[in-house]
Write a protein that binds this DNA or RNA. Structure first.
Length: 120
DNA sequence: GCAATGACGCTCT
DNA sequence: CAGAGCGCCATTG
């Protein structure tokens, strides 16, 4: 495994910053992590995580506002939905979240982009 | 170093 | 509004 590359740390930090009851898209996280356009890297970083990771990975969804079907058939996508509903996130009949209401809207200062690397 | 795969995003139909 | 196709970059073999 890559043993947590530099980019991964940025991604994890952003994911950990997602407030409860809100969901962020891979592209959003990627941009905040300084990896604009590399949404795939975000998905890869999360895939590298385990179900035991302390990060709220379940708050990360795709641009469609739906849980992405990961390979392996872990069935964790259902767990992700359950967790989000538990936090107050509502899903529509198609199992998709209304990003217009539950989508995470970070402050502009945070939107500076790749500038948030200060670590406390 | 090259080739294949992947928890994505955007555009077209 | 929903579904399918193409392109992007990063990681792994």
């Amino acid at each position: 495994m890559a043993v947590a590359t530099f980019s991964y740390q940025q991604i994890y930090r952003v994911v950990a910053g997602i407030p409860s009851g809100r969901v962020a898209t891979y592209g959003q996280v990627a941009r905040l992590a300084g990896l604009a356009g590399r949404a795939r890297a975000v998905g890869y970083a999360l895939s590298a995580l385990d179900g035991t990771s302390p990060l709220p990975w379940h708050r990360v969804v795709n641009a469609a506002g739906a849980v992405s079907p990961r390979s392996g058939g872990d069935g964790m996508e259902q767990v992700q939905r359950m967790r989000l509903q538990r936090e107050g996130v509502a899903f529509d009949a198609r199992g998709r979240v209304r990003l217009a209401d539950f989508g995470w809207q970070p402050a502009e200062e945070l939107l500076r982009g790749a500038q948030e690397n200060k670590k406390a």
